[in-house]
Design a protein around this nucleic acid. Structure first.
Lengths: 365, 365
DNA sequence: CTGAAAGCGCTAACAA
DNA sequence: TTGTTAGCGCTTTCAG
């Protein structure tokens, strides 16, 4: 089978020190003379020594395992978060245990605590919508297990949270639409269970304000984050008279639904209707026309979350605010308001410019 | 912090047996009188006892960890595989370590062996395109580490592989198109590095054969699995004269690209052109019109792979062939051949029937 | 069928 | 700055 494991003792033997000294070197503990440390390091290298995680965690307190809790908002989101967290974990000698959950499960809290204690996880990272699950968060808090929240609903716990600027970027997107001449900009609200939904909606209103457009409740429809809910919301919204010339959907799936509905109603995009989304899932750039949207820095947020968690586990956490900006991605689903020369771009010019690109990025405030 | 761990000794105490007997019960070993076993089980229950993985793996040989190797073909594929494997692992007391790889990395083999020995993985599951990476597979074989391949290129190692019927389902899809009256059916080939690509192409040819249509090389274009390559391939293919009335793309992303190109060329789908894909990624049902495609039983395959792996680890593997059928999903992107009444369905009737549904499923041979 | 003893490879006190 | 001595909680011999 596999090559027999080299142990700490063999390393100690080769380096002519005690195993405790080797242990010190492995764990970056102080009180080792540089020359000794080097000798140990050489021995480790020579023997291809890797400490046994099982032994370490049995003897010590830690498992060197951290858990990632998520309730699949979209698979691309999940894989991005995983990769971001994984890179950081591995780099610091930790492994990742992934944990799909159901945020509506009444005994989610019980399950999670059980899983944490069974697997002896050293810490947890929660993504939305789990990061805004009050009961879960306070259960973890009570258990005293370290955790970090990705995109939680409020900024009350900065040392244990990583944010992006949803509100600002939505405001900016709305202003962008206004700058194209649109005056009636509909908004499809996301699933009420998700905290980010409220923030995005506020950003939309901010943008209206800043562009001097009055918020009109009739231009707003409730969606539920799904493609189908986007279709339905768009159907209602597009039957208004006058009808909005632009629609801002709270996520890309709903935007895709709205786009399909527009096609079915015979509306040209962007000639008759501009549509924008939020997330920049892979789908966005594969729609016809390619969707203008907002890209979240998911991977970076995940990496930062893992960094904060590991820092917390080591007891070095600090009280800073960690926020990473989102980015507008302008593609082909947006254009000047129909029958208007207010827009800055002539009809069609935009399409030509970007048709082959992955979209134009504009750094968000 | 967390509640102090209950140990095997406390259980033994309560059950009035030795720790060895408790160990036997935990590991489902024989030679325990049923009544004794029950007493132990009760004690375990009463104490909420969970064995320490670290201790088990330190004392025993196993780590109770299995690894999943993948090179992200698509995020929905990855998350599906993960969930399938995870369910099975957890159910049998194992944990999953995920491992994104780069199949083109020249020292992939080295990295993987190192990771396996460092993390002391008990076994591995490989997904395409890693499962058709000859060098990798033989490295693992040499190391003697148990593994299972998902959808490998050939059926030479059935005990360690899980298959689906790519070829048969592609044949069937082609026949379906032929049954709608199409006689010139283009095919966009996938990335040459992926073994499944060849199989699917063979299935397409089978279908042509079976439908009495002659294979014409000019109706074939090379793609590279990406959306963009689908656009390009479609552009070439649709400029043929006469132009194909149906296009079969080797995956959904390329089909989406082809669809976009068709839209840009002003072709109606399915009135002027039928398009089908392969995979049934979430994108497929969100396109306009919704894409007819083939659904792979990813989760089931993953579950089966985990089952085979665990069986192998326990030394009980058998030499059966494990193949799980794929399914045709008929949506709105396919219809009768234009200017033809050969199809079994009148124009438009299909659309009506399925417009709100997730598609009609037809069990594949 | 059951149990006693000896580690697995490491970390955590405590000495030196 | 370094080493010694106990275990961590389990599985594995090998005896009963």
């Amino acid at each position: 089978m596999a090559i027999r494991k080299t142990t700490i003792e063999e390393v100690a033997g080769l380096a002519r020190v005690s195993i405790k000294t080797v242990s010190r070197v492995i764990n970056d503990e102080p009180n080792v003379r540089p020359s000794t440390r080097q000798r140990v390091l050489d021995a480790i290298e020579r023997l291809h020594y890797h400490p046994s995680q099982s032994a370490r965690s049995l003897a010590g307190a830690r498992s060197y395992l951290i858990g990632l809790l998520y309730d699949n908002p979209s698979s691309s989101y999940v894989t991005n978060v995983q990769e971001g967290v994984l890179d950081r974990c591995r780099a610091e000698g930790y492994e990742l245990i992934i944990n799909p959950c159901d945020y509506k499960d009444p005994d989610l809290c019980t399950q999670v605590s059980k899983m944490v204690s069974q697997a002896r996880l050293d810490g947890l990272i929660l993504t939305p919508p789990l990061s805004d699950h009050k009961a879960l968060v306070s259960t973890l808090d009570d258990q005293g297990i370290p955790f970090v929240l990705i995109a939680p609903p409020d900024r009350s716990d900065p040392a244990r949270s990583v944010f992006t600027d949803d509100r600002e970027s939505c405001c900016e997107m709305t202003c962008y639409l206004a700058s194209l001449g649109h005056e009636q900009i509909g908004y499809i609200i996301g699933h009420p269970d998700h905290a980010a939904v409220g923030t995005r909606f506020l950003g939309y209103k901010d943008g209206l304000d800043r562009s001097g457009i009055r918020f009109d409740e009739r231009s707003t429809e409730q969606g539920y984050n799904s493609f189908e809910s986007g279709e339905l919301a768009a159907r209602k919204m597009l039957s208004l008279d006058p009808r909005p010339t632009a629609v801002f959907a709270g996520n890309d799936d709903m935007a895709a639904g709205a786009m399909k509905m527009a096609h079915e109603l015979g509306l040209g995009i962007p000639e008759d209707l501009s549509i924008v989304g939020f997330d920049d899932v892979p789908l966005a750039s594969h729609l016809w026309p390619a969707l203008t949207t907002i890209r979240q820095p998911i991977r970076e947020m995940a990496d930062k979350a893992a960094e904060l968690l590991l820092r917390q586990i080591r007891g070095e956490s600090r009280e800073e605010l960690h926020s990473i900006p989102s980015t507008l991605v302008i593609r082909d689903s947006t254009g000047p308001k129909p029958d208007s020369n207010n827009g800055r771009l002539g009809s069609g010019s935009m399409k030509e410019a970007d048709s082959e690109s992955r979209g134009t990025e504009i750094r968000s405030a």
